[in-house]
Amino acid sequence: MVTESDEKLMAAVRAGDLRKLAVLFERHHRALFSFFVHMNGNRDLSQDLVQDVFFRILRYRHTYVDGRAFPAWMYQIARNASIDTGNKRKGELQLVTNREDDEDRSAREPVSELVAADEAIRRRQEIDLLRRALARLPDEKREVLVLSRFQNLAYEEIAAILGCEVGTVKVRVFRATKALGEIYFELAGERAS
């Protein structure tokens, strides 16, 4: 089956073929959901936001410009949706531990030997610590890091989403990693002492 590009599908949605939105939804809703969970730490809120983004896309479909990269446009809408609800629900940021997801992953990796079990525990602790460090990172730093590390977006796309130069994105990604590292090692030190 020939797969249509995101941009072609979005042009069709704009022209009134609303069913094509379902294809875009199937392609992007997982990544979008994970983006929101990283940003607000709340699964219920993130689920609502994913819905919200796709219906904003419908409502503002006439503003989509031909040839514009769809993911960049979608994440821009996502950021606005996040800001709109984030302002309403400020201070609710909570840390999700995502036990289901963790178990999912460890179930896929054969942990048959004791050494491997030990390694799995160590890795889980590290993931836990990283999650806590991420949650402490200021929003704008966490955002640029999530977009580049988890959403598989090219720097050019991130630059389009954030409305800045590609060079700026690179510097910001590095600074966010550095800030994350500082928090991480601080947390690790607290635990060791």
Binding site: A22, F25, H29, R30, V50, N98, D101, D104
Partner: peptide, 23 residues
């Protein structure tokens, strides 16, 4: 590299159902 080990959050199953209903 550690960030790469964080499993991706899986959307709840009724996310899809709700989307299609609304669409």
């Amino acid at each position: 590299r550690g960030l790469g080990n964080i499993p991706e959050a899986q959307p709840p199953s009724d996310l899809r159902r709700r989307f299609y209903e609304r669409l």
